[in-house]
Amino acid sequence: NITNLCPFDEVFNATRFASVYAWNRKRISNCVADYSVLYNFAPFFAFKCYGVSPTKLNDLCFTNVYADSFVIRGNEVSQIAPGQTGNIADYNYKLPDDFTGCVIAWNSNKLDSKVGGNYNYLYRLFRKSNLKPFERDISTEIYQAGNKPCNGVAGFNCYFPLRSYGFRPTYGVGHQPYRVVVLSFELLHAPATVCGPKKST
């Protein structure tokens, strides 16, 4: 009989979020998941679920829940969905086509923008091939755009693969920082350890 609540607040209220190319993952297990707390949290810009209804989450049990978190621009949030393409979905964070879970995003301009620009948040701009679902690539190898080998030196046709967002408070909404948490639900042939409040007695 599990009684402790799942530590969703640790994920959602973290002081610093990860850059999207180096997205953070927390495994959540052996706890009671009260999703209504999240669902009623006012400032969400997006709360979209795939393969599961957000209002039914509290009735369900899962083997594991993974909480992935990172920061992207407002106009990139739409790429955090199954079957998407674009710089983020291709080179930074890719969801599987059969994704079961929820994508939760909110504007973090007050936290993550600075006058003069916040350059701490990076994304991958160049990559030889697209990421596989949930693949994480933190390499900083110089990207070779031409035929000539770069030998690890940036220059003509040789690019550092990461780019900084440089968030400023005055940017338009599409270019403002958004914090994103992706909850993915794993249902294995194993005992369920993460259940909603109704199922955990």
Rank of each mutant, 00 (worst) to 15 (best):
C102F: 01
A89N: 03
L38W: 05
N4G: 11
F126K: 15
D112V: 00
G155L: 07
G86A: 04
K110G: 13
I88P: 02
A190F: 09
F160N: 15
P161F: 02
A89S: 07
K132E: 11
V181N: 00
D137Q: 02
N118I: 04
G83W: 03
V194Q: 11
Y121G: 03
L125D: 15
R179V: 04
Y171N: 14
L187Q: 15
S29M: 08
L125N: 15
L183N: 00
K56C: 07
A18I: 02
F156H: 14
D34F: 03
A67M: 13
C31P: 06
S29L: 06
C150G: 05
N40M: 07
N13R: 04
P133S: 07
R27W: 05
F45K: 15
A42C: 03
Y121F: 12
I80C: 01
E10A: 10
S78M: 07
V20F: 01
G116C: 05
S36V: 04
C195G: 11
L60T: 10
P169N: 09
N40Q: 14
L162F: 10
P177E: 04
Y21G: 04
A46S: 14
K199N: 14
R179F: 03
F134P: 03
C6V: 04
C102V: 01
P149S: 15
A145N: 13
R73S: 13
F185V: 05
S69L: 02
T85E: 08
S53R: 09
N109L: 07
N4L: 07
Q79L: 02
F156V: 14
D68R: 01
N13T: 04
L38Y: 02
D9Y: 12
A46Y: 14
N1D: 09
I28G: 03
C31W: 04
Y123G: 03
A67T: 05
F44V: 09
L60R: 09
N157F: 08
V181M: 03
N118L: 03
W106E: 01
S164I: 05
Y50M: 02
Y39G: 12
Y91L: 07
G101I: 01
C6P: 02
V71Y: 01
S78Q: 10
G174N: 14
Y91W: 07
N107K: 06
G116L: 09
A46M: 15
L131R: 01
F45T: 14
A46W: 14
F185E: 00
V181L: 04
A22K: 11
D34K: 04
N118F: 05
S108K: 01
N151C: 08
I72C: 07
R168W: 08
V52C: 07
Y159M: 13
E76S: 01
W23L: 03
S53P: 08
P133C: 04
S139Y: 04
L57Q: 03
K128S: 13
N87S: 12
N24P: 01
K94M: 01
G146K: 08
N4W: 06
V103A: 00
A33H: 05
F134Q: 09
P169H: 09
F160Y: 14
N87M: 15
N92W: 02
S164G: 12
Y66A: 04
L162I: 11
Y119L: 11
S108Y: 02
N4A: 12
K48H: 08
S36L: 05
P96T: 03
P82Q: 01
S139F: 03
A154W: 08
N64E: 11
K26H: 07
F17E: 04
L162R: 03
I80S: 02
L131G: 03
I2V: 13
E135Q: 10
T85Q: 10
K132S: 10
V115L: 12
W23D: 04
T3S: 12
N157I: 05
A67D: 01
I80N: 02
D34C: 04
E76C: 00
V173D: 14
Y123V: 08
F126D: 13
Y91M: 07
A42D: 06
K94L: 00
E135G: 08
V103G: 00
N147T: 15
G155V: 06
N118Y: 06
A105D: 00
D137M: 00
V37N: 11
V20W: 04
E76V: 01
N130F: 08
F41E: 07
V173K: 14
F70G: 02
C49W: 08
V194W: 09
K199L: 11
Y123Q: 08
C150W: 02
T201C: 14
G74L: 02
D97N: 11
F8C: 02
L188D: 15
Y178D: 02
T140C: 09
D68C: 02
A67R: 01
E186M: 02
C6F: 05
C61G: 07
A190Y: 10
C158G: 06
Y21P: 04
L38Q: 02
R124P: 03
I138S: 12
P191K: 14
G146L: 05
N24V: 07
P96H: 01
F99R: 00
K199W: 14
T55Y: 12
F160G: 11
N157D: 15
S164N: 12
A192W: 09
Q79W: 00
L122K: 15
F70K: 02
G172Q: 14
I104E: 00
A192T: 13
V153C: 11
F17D: 04
D90E: 08
I2A: 14
C6E: 05
V71A: 04
F160Q: 15
D34A: 03
V11H: 03
V153L: 12
I138L: 13
C61R: 13
N30K: 06
F126N: 15
S200N: 12
G166M: 09
P161R: 02
N30Q: 06
G117Q: 09
C49N: 00
N118D: 12
F156R: 15
Y91P: 03
N107T: 04
S129D: 14
E10P: 03
R73Q: 13
K132T: 09
E76N: 05
